[in-house]
């Protein structure tokens, strides 16, 4: 996977992970992939719902030792 940008949103509480992801995504080109790292459990459902609502594609997500990683392709 070719990742264009990585956003570290660890330790940020809702709504900041989505706010930051949205801001970062605005600076990217369609088709580019953003990797987002979070620790807030609420961000799991919210980032997926936000991506869907904004026309982006959630390619993959995983959890490792309390850190959630998301790969979102800009739509």
């Amino acid at each position: 996977m070719n990742i264009a940008k990585v956003l570290d949103a660890k330790a940020l509480a809702c709504p900041m992970p989505v706010v930051r992801a949205r801001k970062t995504m605005k600076e990217m080109e369609t088709g580019e992939i953003l990797e987002v790292l979070t620790t807030d459990k609420g961000s799991v459902a919210d980032l997926s719902a936000w991506a869907k609502s904004s026309g982006h594609e959630m390619l993959d997500q995983k959890e490792d030792a309390g850190v959630f990683t998301f790969y979102i392709k800009k739509g």
Partner: peptide, 9 residues
């Protein structure tokens, strides 16, 4: 009324 916060940013 239910509007997710990310639609109100």
């Amino acid at each position: 009324m239910n509007v997710p916060y990310f639609d109100l940013l």
